[in-house]
Amino acid sequence: MSELADAFVTALKLIFTGDPEVMAVAARTLGISCSATFFAALISIPIACLIHFNHFKGKGTLISILQTFYAIPTVLVGLLVFIIFSRAGPLGGLGILFTPQVMVIGQVVLISPLMTGLTVSALSGVRPEIRDTAVSLGAGRLQMARTVLVEAKYATLTAVLIGFGRAISEVGLAIMVGGNIRGFTRTLTTAMSLETSMGNIELSMALGIILLSLALIVIIIPSWIQQRSSRVQQR
């Protein structure tokens, strides 16, 4: 138990003394995961709309495939991204292996299927009357899609946040394609992995607590707004 308590004290110390290295690692972690979430949302939400609003052969199969990718192991994505961006690989000429950029790319690949699938579910949850009403009022396809998307905004937001959660917590991908370079590609999870292997359990736990706090802050802001706005609507 004392190990946990010590870790908590260490975490508080690191946070409040503003340890520059820890702060830099935390900022980098947040930067990489938020960028990945942003780009993944940019890709996933339009694709989810295309899937939801169109009827085509194999739609069910496509959704099943997407759902399979919810569980794709991070090390597998890491291996694929490594092979593609390694100098000997097809995109090796870019020379971006072992950079934060390639970590963002890897995380986008990792979380996009998850976000797309959950957004499709979110859109399916909207009552069909809303769509019908929009169409009967003369809405074009784009307007109709927008109306339904706005109606499903909280569920879509949840999809985005779950994607963020997966991005910020993964370690296999970050270590394989980022290389855990001090001051460049080291994130909270890869730092934890290294510190644990070096026997610095307390520091590692402290980093874990910081990671959890960051995730909490990012998750809590939208849900706070959601609660406030639903209270406004009730009035």
């Binding site: 960028s35 942003f38 937001l157 706005s229």
Partner: peptide, 25 residues
């Protein structure tokens, strides 16, 4: 309200993105 919500989230993400890029440059 929904506009504010979407705006806020985009702002947070863009900010984090921008904050990372200058660090690199």
């Amino acid at each position: 309200m929904k506009r504010i919500l979407i705006f806020l989230i985009s702002a947070v993400m863009l900010l984090s993105l921008v904050s990372m890029l200058p660090a690199c440059s």
